[in-house]
């Protein structure tokens, strides 16, 4: 019933040559895959640090910034809305993800219980909404007007409180927890709340980490809800701010101001800088979550 960390006990056995070949091939393949998948971000990074005029001329692969310059970042970070953008997004991510994970865990646990009568109808009730919806205008009228969430950050959190896909994933994970554990707990007199929070969740850290990741990233990247519900620019989340910077700098491209040709093409590099500015925080936070679901340190449960 108690989850502890075990030091991995290495049980050695002799690897066959087939296994060794497989291992070697795997490493080779994954290195190649890494090379191919890292390129887009490398390109974006170098492009964001490049001189815009030169970038316009450049075709093909990019292996280093062209005439290293921070100009694009200066433009992006100097925008007065950047700070409020980060602040708003942080609020949405933290509060939103907490709400998401809490509700999803409740729902996933409830739906994974085998002897609950309403289980199947409830699943149907929920999954049905993945396919049929009322559309933008009725939702907007509900959230914005009837519930008066118009122009608040809550409009970005509450309408998306549970994502059905995540709910299903978590339910599947909970279904995988051995029944014996649950039964043992009940014998000890635990009720469902205890079982959920003291047993299931600690056992399912990988899935919880993934939920935090999925919901967190979704909040971090979201902008459509903000487009619909937010009127004041002080409440714009980060993605919306970046979107505006991007659009206004691209149109700036169109200006006829000849004397600053370099300045004009800046829209290109700003595009890349906004991606880095938006993605960097995620990349920094990610390793903390990753260790939960890339199995390395053995976190397991000891029965009884």
């Amino acid at each position: 019933m108690v989850a502890t960390a075990l030091r991995p006990r290495r049980i050695r056995h002799k690897e066959s040559s087939g296994e060794r070949l497989f291992g070697f091939g795997t490493v080779l393949f994954l290195v190649a895959l890494m090379g191919v998948t890292i390129y887009p971000l490398i390109y974006v990074l170098f492009a964001s640090l490049s001189n815009a005029a030169e970038l316009t001329q450049h075709r093909g692969l990019l292996f280093a910034p062209l005439s290293f310059t921070f100009e694009a970042y200066r433009r992006v970070l100097e925008n007065p809305l950047i700070l409020t953008g980060y602040r708003n997004t942080l609020f949405i991510v933290i509060v939103g993800t907490a709400l998401n994970v809490f509700l999803t865990a409740l729902g996933a646990y409830a739906l994974s219980r085998r002897n609950v009568l309403l289980r199947n109808p409830a699943m149907f009730f929920i999954v049905f909404t993945m396919f049929f919806s009322g559309g933008l205008i009725p939702t907007y009228l509900l959230v914005g007007q009837t519930l008066h969430l118009q122009n608040t950050l809550w409009a970005l959190i509450i309408p998306g409180a549970v994502q059905t896909l995540n709910l299903i994933i978590m339910r599947t994970a909970f279904q995988g927890v051995p029944v014996a554990l649950e039964e043992a707990a009940r014998i000890d007199g635990a009720n469902d709340w205890t079982i959920l929070f003291r047993i299931f969740l600690p056992l399912s850290w990988p899935v919880v980490a993934v939920m935090i990741l999925f919901y967190g990233v979704a909040h971090w990247n979201s902008f459509f809800s903000a487009l619909v519900y937010i009127r004041e620019r002080d409440l714009y989340p980060l993605q919306l701010v970046l979107r505006e910077i991007l659009i206004s700098s691209n149109v700036q491209n169109m200006a006829t101001d000849v004397s600053s040709g370099d300045v004009l093409a800046i829209g290109e590099t700003i595009k890349y800088a906004t991606i880095i500015v938006a993605t960097l925080p995620i990349l920094l936070v990610y390793p903390y979550l990753q260790r939960y679901f890339v199995k390395g340190v053995t976190i397991g449960a000891i029965k009884e």
Binding site: G134, T139, L141
Partner: peptide, 8 residues
């Protein structure tokens, strides 16, 4: 939030 607007 899902069935409410579904009349749409």
């Amino acid at each position: 939030f899902h069935y409410g607007p579904m009349y749409g």
